[in-house]
Amino acid sequence: MAIVAPPSRFSKYGRPVLAWAVGLLFFFPIFWMILTSFKSDADAVKPEYLFVFQPTLENYLNMTENYDYWRFAKNSVITAVSATIFTLFVGIPCAYAMAFNPSKATKDVLMWMLSTKMLPAAAVLYPMTFLTKSLGLFDTHFLVIMVLSLINLPIVVWMLFTYFKEIPKDIIEAGQMDGVNTWGEFKEILVPLAWGGIVSTALLCFIFCWNEAYWTVRLTTTEAATLSKLIEGNRAPEGLFFGRLSAVSAAAVGPIVVLGWFCQKQLVQGLTFGAVK
């Protein structure tokens, strides 16, 4: 039973107003970027056109010739999608085994996996450069895919593990009584039951891959360069190209921000390794 307290004036008017103000304030930089992306480069830096201006699509239409956007976008899609698929391919069996056949070492293995995620990437910068160059992998899709997979594998295993563990053991045992084999258990019971979890894990993994900005910047030049590298390479336009830079930035983050809205809930679990529920 809830206790009905008389609503204070704050909760009636103050809270919504303040909350909306905070929300808009946080969204403002993104809004500003989108707004600027519809201004011509010249208008973008003029105070008189701050909010009222002649909108134009030229920045978006010229993304290819200004920045070769689609080449980088293609690389981002290829690497992020492949890395997500590969990570799930390796991660699902692993999480499955850990959740349903835990041994004494399972906990330690999981913790160790997480600890690899906590190593600062910069510490192995030179060895990675050295290795990839000597193996001829530098600036290749394969390398980017592998690196993205490996840095996300711990989180993926971890998230899937927590989803699989939520499946009641009784249901798995009922399956055993009913005569399913390992593959059947996987196909008929596990995947359908954890489908939501698998999808949101994949989404989150994809987002992390897309936004990765250390290895994709340091281990690529042109062939496998992703959008992070493109933006990083155009870091300082000195005000000349605010319009076109905003457009290419908006195009780089837009789809991901929208995707992110759909997996807010899983984000908490994914990033805190299930420690906050």
Binding site: D170, I171, E173, A174, M177, D178, G179, P192, L193
Partner: peptide, 30 residues
């Protein structure tokens, strides 16, 4: 002998029904 080959059926405390299957499919599953 594995559980399903012993010719025994079990009713669990939590019922352990397959939540993603209809009643018909649950009963038909074995």
């Amino acid at each position: 002998v594995p559980p399903s080959k012993r010719g025994l059926a079990m009713v669990f405390q939590s019922y352990a029904l397959y939540p993603h299957m209809s009643v018909r499919k649950n009963i038909a599953f074995p």
